[in-house]
């Protein structure tokens, strides 16, 4: 406690000098600058998201009952049973790494990853196929759909 009051009085002693006031205010300005920039960074996040949604054509994955929606938020989406898969189906009919969705120039492509039960699009077994809106994807026993949702701000 003594040490603390001593520190405060020493600090006060230093900050009573003109030059140290300037130095301290420089420190504070840099602090503010850094924090404001970082705060602004979160604001940018929205524009990045908007740009991305546009590029990804506002696509989501869902099932027939629309019991879940999975927003396609990155250029590669890994589907499978393994815990590290982005979209996980805890079902033995699905391979650990079953299929991969990729975005390229605004087009989503599905690619089968040598899965045991195979990947089907609209009932046809595929190894690689460009997807269209409302396509039905079958992996293992699971059926999912790729859908375009209306952008909220339009």
């Amino acid at each position: 406690m003594d040490g603390f009051t001593e520190f405060i009085s020493e600090l006060a002693g230093r900050l009573s000098q003109f030059t140290d006031i300037i130095a301290a205010s420089a420190l504070i300005i840099i602090d503010i600058c850094a924090l404001v920039i970082i705060a602004f960074c979160t604001k940018e996040k929205k524009t990045v998201q908007a740009q991305w949604s546009k590029a990804a054509r506002h696509m989501i994955l869902t099932d027939a009952a629309e019991s879940f929606t999975f927003t396609l938020n990155s250029q590669e989406v890994l589907m499978g049973r393994h815990i590290s898969a982005d979209l996980r189906f805890p079902d033995m009919s699905v391979s650990r790494y079953h299929a991969l969705l990729t975005l390229d120039n605004g087009i989503w492509t599905i690619k089968d990853l040598d899965s045991t039960s195979g990947t089907y699009v609209n009932g046809v077994k595929i190894t690689e196929k460009k997807l269209r809106n409302n396509d039905e994807i079958t992996i293992g026993k699971k059926k999912i759909y790729i859908r375009r949702v209306k952008p909220q701000n339009v």
């Binding site: 740009q51 991305w52 546009k54 590029a55 990804a56 054509r57 120039n105 605004g106 087009i107 269209r132 809106n133 409302n134 375009r148």
Partner: peptide, 11 residues
Amino acid sequence: YPVPVRPAQQN
């Protein structure tokens, strides 16, 4: 990201 010029299909 490049946004496709021609929409693939009407949704």
